[in-house]
Design a protein around this nucleic acid. Structure first.
Lengths: 241, 241
DNA sequence: TCAAAAGTGTTCCGAATACACCCATGC
DNA sequence: GCATGGGTGTATTCGGAACACTTTTGA
């Protein structure tokens, strides 16, 4: 396959073949939220290279598949959930980033409710574990870099788009939401003001239900108004506060 | 090369070889600004496929090179400028997106001062031309999609980060800056308020120079305070107005 | 002196901030 | 009744929006 008509082979006298030797992979930064902390799902590798090391969930993409399908596949494989929210955030192409060859990897982040998550056994993962993003182990490959960029992306994105829907259970209190935002943005908010601001955005539906078995006044439960929520997801908003 | 230790070859009984058949390319959305309009630089292809069609500036990446280097190379090649501002925005991996094989492309956008730009002859480009983003021709490959995503990225990013530095000449008036923002965000601003808002951000240095040869009161010229500008680039800000 | 665009000041209003206070529940 | 967190109201301040006005130039 030597195609002189290719528009890329400009001044170089090389054959096209030489160019088609890349490997492509996906790496997923799976975020969850539990007990006031933002978590990331990592796997303990059961194979060389980096056997025994913690790593992001990832896989080589087969030329007949694509990134989204591959990412969905491994996520479903590992969490038992499918149709998880997922978004591409960056592509890493350092020449030496992978010991097996020239592998370019595309980073995706996804958001899951940890309550729904049940780890699934897998041949290539010795174990999986949630880590707080404040206390992460050393990672295989350049996964530290990918993870950092993923966290940075999430933190930036949360200011312009709603995120709670994917991370919180169906019913939650305003305090839950506030704690989530505090964890994501790493700061505290004034309770009355947080409430006012969030409620004014109109993407919450107050329910006629309350917390139970708490030794204080039970909090009202809310759910997300999916329509309005998706609208804001597209339009964006500025979460100043 | 059949590596049973690869962590990716999970349940599939395939050899690793099969996976290393991707091509990788870069496509650059080169933005400029001239006479109150945001422009994109396109090339008229001189090679099959899509000979004669307009396309983004792009190239296959050689396995021994990387995305940034390749992008810089073709930009320098085509514009005569190097070290142009450039940022990755999305990766496109549709299976059938390229007629020559499985090519995954990474979109970059860059910002250039059209004043500095001088088109350079190139073997693979019959011609190059600036197009207003409001009046674009049909494009080769899936470049329409890439361009749309690039424009969308720029429009979004301009709200959170300063951009004028790369698009305007060294010295400019506040009206220039306002017109640029109006073109980027596709809306008009109130002059006094725009002024107040921009000046409050402190990234402009007022010069002791003025417009010349205008048939009205000459406007003061400004330049960007590079230090403060880069600081805002990193930190981000919300451009509400 | 007129047109045209630069540049300033002022008023109005809504939203962010800070903080005091009341309410409902378990123990 | 008291500790605990849920939930509300208000006074203050700041910034966005609208708009009227003055200034400086060339023709």
């Amino acid at each position: 396959m030597n195609n002189p008509n290719s528009y890329f082979l400009t001044e170089k006298n090389t054959s096209l073949d030489e160019y088609f030797n890349f490997g492509l992979s996906v790496d997923c930064v799976v975020f969850g939220y539990h007990e006031g902390e933002v978590k990331v799902l990592l796997v303990e590798r059961n194979e060389e290279p980096f056997r025994g090391a913690w790593a992001l969930i990832g896989d080589l993409v087969h030329p007949k598949s694509d990134l989204a399908a591959s990412a969905n596949h491994i996520l479903e494989n590992l969490t038992g959930l499918n149709g998880i929210f997922m978004e591409q955030f960056f592509t890493f192409d350092e020449i030496d980033r992978h010991p097996l060859g020239r592998v370019v990897t595309v980073g995706y982040y996804s958001l899951v409710e940890t309550d729904n998550y049940h780890p699934v056994a897998s041949s290539w993962a010795k174990s999986t574990r949630w880590f707080s993003i404040k206390d992460l182990p050393d990672l295989a490959f350049d996964h530290q870099l990918i993870l950092d960029k993923g966290i940075q992306t999430l933190k930036r994105r949360v200011r312009y788009r709603p995120v709670g829907f994917e991370l919180l259970p169906k019913k939650f209190t305003l305090a839950d939401l506030q704690t989530l935002y505090e964890a994501l943005l790493d700061r505290v908010f004034d309770k009355p003001n947080f409430r006012k601001k969030i409620l004014r955005m109109n993407f919450l539906t107050p329910l006629d239900e309350f917390e139970e078995n708490v030794s204080h006044r039970p909090a009202k439960l809310y759910s997300f108004d999916e329509e309005r929520y998706n609208h804001l997801r597209k339009e964006g908003f500025a979460f100043e506060l």
